[in-house]
Design a binder for these strands. Structure first.
Lengths: 201, 201, 201, 201
DNA sequence: GATGAATGAGTATTCATTCAT
DNA sequence: CATGAATGAATACTCATTCAT
């Protein structure tokens, strides 16, 4: 029931859209649902965003994740895991946005966005670290693990992973990452930096 | 003859449903799509299965995967990878059924089915092999990897993994599996057994 | 409230569509209007015709006019006038279909249909009769007169033309037609043939 | 300056409305279209004109046609034809306003305006010239021809008429007009007057 | 038992219009 | 006075599902 504040309305619509699209996927979400959640008229969605798809794009485009490249290299994988495991991602319904987006992966657009996000924030960053022969493949294998952990945690909710904190995974992370990247990797993030890591925007 | 026809129609509907649900997800698939694909009247779906949801349940219930438990224990993970990487899964639109099902994971039913499939065919089997303290967690971490590999291969289609065959992954599989399970694991499946793996259509 | 008779429903929809489209034009007519007029559910329109536009095409395609070419040549123009003036065109809301269609002439499709109808049933038939130099132009000028008479009669409803019967126009028709075509034309249709002229199908 | 702007905006809105309504008809034209064309906010339309319909009325009321009564009587019909054929009517999208208005003739208001325009500027002027018995009818028949010519030229676009200039039609105009009015009529307008005919924008 | 006509609630989107700032 | 945020009814069209024949 907020009124006459374009920016506020836009923001509320984006937040509601983010949540719905994450939880139910593109198809199962109706613009009316989003409007109802936001307490605004559905037609404003078209005034502000043009179409359902454009709203989807804008709602999911902004990658609200912390910058993984900030910090020591040997903690990169640990930071990734922390982002997946310790972050609560309430704005995306409690799931890592990448995982949530898989729900809309029937649409080529969403697929493309997933692709880009995975490559940009995981594969490329890891490939730069990997030593030796098939660096690309090993970077992808490690990326796959990150994504898989996110999925088992939130959509499958397997008992141990669902409860685990990044700290519990640290030793395994360290050894597998070290193994796959061919260089020593840490399983935990240094305390002095970790505080900046969980404050989402 | 009557009976045969009925059964044949049911089968055709299930196959078409499987493919559509896998490719487009539950919501984007209409019963008329499935009926058209099968060349039968849409109302038969309701006669035979009761509702769209029940058809979905039946179409996705039958896990058409080869039995992973058959064969030597140290090749279990290799068999899993082969199932994900070397199998073409044409009946599910070219994606591992687990991956395809993620597309419908907004629906609790589908989620439940994913959960069960992951637990039954991955986590439990791996947990039985894991040695030492946090066996469950390590089994889940390895399961997560399997799922992640499936996703990066087919939905994200990262360059190296999309092209890779199980053989290319063998050394990495072996070392990570060995590491996580705490016992020596092989990265490849023995030839003499491998033939039973791909003969199903 | 008729029920379970596909053909009857289709026909009722077409009739209602014809009337609405004629009276109100394409844009001002909603598929719900047509459905309500027909007493059937609006979705049947899409089942049977695919879209509003296709319904429009089918409703307006069938030129329910008597064959103007049947009969003596010197009575051709008289037959045209009779078709416009003496025919009541109740199925098109009391207007000649050509005139009614002008209401939808913002749409290129309708325009094209008008063009074809005018050329096929007026210009070409008259051009074949015209003697001398600029036969095409004179045929078109006479066609223009036919169309103009239809418009003044029904949409403008000028007092004299609105009330006039073909017989009242006969002498003027004869002299102008004779003049423009360069050959003797009759203003009236022979009685023995005229009966077949006003029974519409 | 304020006043000037307001007046200028009103004028721009009227011009844009005139063009849109002529080209697309009342229903297919949205107030936002008109506002966008004019480069002003849509709500100004309601401030200035009250409603879409009132804007339509005002936009189409002003008959921007040259005064047909000025000039020698025997050239009246020739002047009418020139107005239809030689005038380019860019402000109405290239069609004679009467013809354009037919597109909106589902609305009684537009119909009324057409009626009035046809009667005032054609029928009455011609009736005053007609000699003999059924003067009214003959005046209307000649008016019908004028309107028909306009329609075939612009909406139907028959080949010969679409290209023709008033001069090409002159002989036929002269003979038919003479015939129908019962008095000698010229097919062309005298040069010395013709200049006043096209100077309006 | 099977065909397909019917239905009603749902979809995204656009409309003319109002009202707060 | 003017901008533009808000509104609610309407649009064409699709959906899963039922029911008469």
């Amino acid at each position: 029931m907020q009124k006459r504040d374009r920016e506020a309305t836009r923001t509320r619509l984006l937040e509601a859209a983010r949540l719905r699209f994450a939880r139910e996927g593109y198809d199962a979400t109706s613009v009316r649902d989003i409007a109802r959640d936001s307490g605004v008229d559905a037609t404003l969605i078209f005034r502000y965003f043009g179409s359902k798809k454009q709203l989807f794009d804008q709602a999911t485009a902004t990658a609200h994740s912390p910058d993984l490249l900030e910090g020591p290299q040997e903690e990169l994988v640990a930071r990734m895991v922390a982002t997946i495991v310790d972050h609560d991602w309430t704005e995306y319904g409690g799931e890592h946005p990448l995982v949530a987006m898989l729900r809309s992966s029937a649409h080529e657009d969403a697929r493309q966005r997933i692709r880009q996000e995975v490559c940009d924030t995981y594969v490329i960053a890891l490939r730069d670290l990997a030593k030796g022969q098939d660096a690309e493949l090993r970077a992808e294998l490690l990326s796959a693990w990150m994504v898989g952990i996110g999925i088992l945690r939130s959509v499958v909710a397997t008992p141990a992973l669902a409860e685990a904190r990044a700290a519990d995974l640290a030793p395994h992370i360290a050894s597998v990452a070290t193994d796959l990247l061919g260089r020593p990797m840490s399983g935990t993030v240094d305390q002095s930096r970790s505080e900046g890591e969980s404050d989402q925007t």
